[in-house]
């Protein structure tokens, strides 16, 4: 066997391993038929290199959330039309992340997929690694019913699971704004070495702030991130598990708590007493 062929087999094996190791399943998607509706044309497919052809500069953010493929069709029925976009991302967390960047907390939220919402002429939801966006045109008074019929059918077609990221359930409920949690896939807090994080918005006694959770790959990963962060903000301490009160040059006073592979923290919370309260809360969490 020639060297080149051996290299080819080795590459293929490497790729298979990488694919098997991936948390995401690249499930093929086929749009369902809808009674009385016809497709305006064949599905359009966009990949990372061509996404900007469809959503222009908005594509950059999708790429940061490990976008893999977009399939688009337009359904028509008389003067009505429904544009259906199915974005596939590498993991459910990434799909939630881009969804969380675009959802509006004031929308009508729906138990579709992991979560969905309806606004006039728009219905979006996430399920597994998929982010589905529907928009209606000339759907008139039936707009909500029409869009909901589509999302139900599309949801049936997509693979599960249908749950929001488990990390979100660990945020305290008191003062937490509903449907405002986010997953930031890269450069969390504006630092490249903090690879990702979840945030939730809070408001208590007129004070608005955020709590965050960084989930490292393991304890060593979390330690490395915290150590680098402390060095970055010139906080003179070694990374050991436990609480921290620090001052970030860009974010101001912050409370941090490191335990296992989790780093919790506050953003924009000037009240030192409340920061201390949260440190106790973080300490009491069962996560390891």
């Amino acid at each position: 066997m020639k060297t080149r062929e051996w290299l080819g087999i080795a590459l293929l094996g490497l790729l298979i391993f990488a694919s098997l190791s991936s948390a995401a399943g690249a499930q093929p998607f086929a749009f369902p038929s809808m009674d009385g509706w016809t497709l305006a044309g064949p599905p359009q497919v966009f990949v990372p290199d061509t996404l900007y052809d469809y959503i222009n500069g908005g594509s950059d953010l999708y790429l940061k959330y490990d976008f893999e493929e977009l399939t688009v069709v337009e359904y028509r029925k008389g003067a009505m039309s429904v544009n259906a976009e199915v974005y596939r991302h590498r993991t459910p967390d990434h799909a939630f992340g881009i969804y969380s960047q675009e959802r509006v907390p004031s929308a009508e939220f729906l138990p579709i997929g992991a979560q969905g919402y309806y606004e006039k002429t728009v219905c979006n939801f996430i399920q597994s690694g998929y982010y589905v966006k529907l928009s209606g045109e000339n759907t008139g008074a039936d707009d909500r019913a029409v869009l909901l019929s589509f999302v139900r059918r599309i949801s049936e077609t997509l693979p599960g699971p249908t749950a929001l990221p488990a990390a979100l359930s660990a945020f305290p409920t008191e003062g937490k704004k509903a449907n405002a949690e986010k997953f930031i896939a890269r450069d969390f807090l504006g630092y490249g070495f903090l690879h990702s994080g979840f945030t939730a918005d809070f408001e208590r006694s007129g004070r608005r702030y955020q709590l965050f959770l960084i989930v490292g790959n393991d304890q060593a990963d979390a330690r490395a991130m915290l150590q680098q962060y402390l060095r970055q903000i010139k906080h003179d301490a070694s990374a050991v598990e436990g609480p921290y009160q620090v001052t970030d040059p860009y974010h101001g006073a912050m409370a941090l708590f490191w335990k296992g592979r989790h780093i919790w923290g506050t953003i924009g919370l000037a009240d030192a007493d409340l920061r201390a309260t949260y440190l106790k809360y973080f300490e009491g969490l069962p996560m390891r």
């Binding site: 908005g58 953010l61 940061k64 930031i184 450069d187 807090l189 504006g190 860009y250 974010h251």
Partner: peptide, 12 residues
């Protein structure tokens, strides 16, 4: 280009 960030502190 602000399109990639939702971090207001970065813009500030």
């Amino acid at each position: 280009g602000v399109m990639n960030t939702d971090n207001p502190q970065l813009v500030r």
